[in-house]
Amino acid sequence: MRKAVAMALAGNAVAMRLCLERVLPLLQDRPVVFKLPPIESPADLPEATAGLLRAVTSGELTPGEAEALRKVIDTHIAALKLVDVTERLTNLEDEKQQ
């Protein structure tokens, strides 16, 4: 790294870029301002994905941004399902003990 800094100080453009990328990495994503409907159960998923589709077709979101949001939605749905299964299991265990 010292050699790259020395080369950058000497005017080597490639070395300058290398050093700057280490200090200030390129931003890969940007904040996405997009209003999603509330997702409280898997039944809410079609409305949310339809909203993503509308946003992509209107140019509000890029396909890559929509895909990233879909992954976040999938994670949220998985968490909701886990809570549901846990509650059902707890109820069954409680019923069995009575």
Rank of each mutant, 00 (worst) to 15 (best):
L69N: 05
R54N: 04
A13N: 07
L53Y: 01
K96T: 08
A15Y: 10
L82I: 05
A55F: 00
A10G: 09
P63L: 09
K3I: 14
R22H: 07
L92E: 14
A68G: 05
M16E: 12
P25H: 01
V56C: 01
Q97I: 10
H76L: 13
K3G: 08
M16L: 11
L26P: 10
L18T: 15
L61E: 02
E67R: 15
S41E: 08
M16G: 04
P25R: 03
A8M: 05
K35T: 13
G11P: 01
V56A: 00
P63E: 03
K81Q: 14
L20Q: 09
L89Y: 09
V23D: 05
T57L: 12
A15M: 09
I77L: 07
L27I: 05
L24W: 08
T49D: 00
I73C: 02
M1A: 10
E93W: 03
T75L: 11
L69V: 15
Q98K: 15
A50I: 00
L27Q: 13
V83E: 14
V33A: 14
N12K: 07
L61W: 03
L69K: 11
T49Y: 09
L80F: 10
E93N: 03
Q97T: 10
P37L: 03
V5K: 07
P37G: 05
R54K: 09
L80T: 05
C19F: 04
A68V: 07
V5F: 11
E95V: 14
M16F: 07
M1P: 00
G11Y: 04
P42C: 03
P38K: 09
G59C: 03
L9M: 11
L26M: 08
E47T: 11
G51P: 00
I77Q: 06
D44N: 08
A55R: 01
E67S: 13
Q97K: 15
E60H: 03
A78H: 00
L89C: 08
V85W: 08
E87K: 06
V85T: 14
Q97M: 12
A79T: 03
K71L: 13
R70V: 03
E87W: 02
D74A: 09
V33T: 12
N12T: 07
E21P: 00
K96R: 15
E95Q: 15
G64D: 15
A68M: 05
E65L: 07
R17L: 14
L69C: 04
V85E: 14
P38G: 06
